[in-house]
Amino acid sequence: MGVQNYLYLSAILFTIGAAGVLLRRNAIVVFMCVELMLNATNLAFVTFARIHGNLDGQIIAFFVMVVAAAEVVVGLAIIVTIFRTRRSTSVDDANLLKY
């Protein structure tokens, strides 16, 4: 088995995450799909680190995790705030910012 299989898996997971962002309407699920995409890229980074033989890829993956954690905190806070005012977590309901 070649190492590139991890990359294929990464691509497939990323695509599924993207499709989830497009298709799901529950803000929390959408958010989770975003996390899935981030994880897919992390897998690619780790695989590249293995291919190139240095740890930079793993470092990047580490930073992605940190940033993702920060993002989750703020994003969930926003979702809670929206839910508090609109009693809904559907991303389609929060559509006032438009033409």
């Binding site: 962002v21 497009l22 389609d92 033409y99």
Partner: peptide, 17 residues
């Protein structure tokens, strides 16, 4: 053109993808 600004995040995500 502004009709493209639907306010739906998923439409924006679609165009991003």
């Amino acid at each position: 053109l502004r009709r493209l600004q639907t306010g739906f995040v998923r439409s924006y995500a679609l165009s991003m993808l």
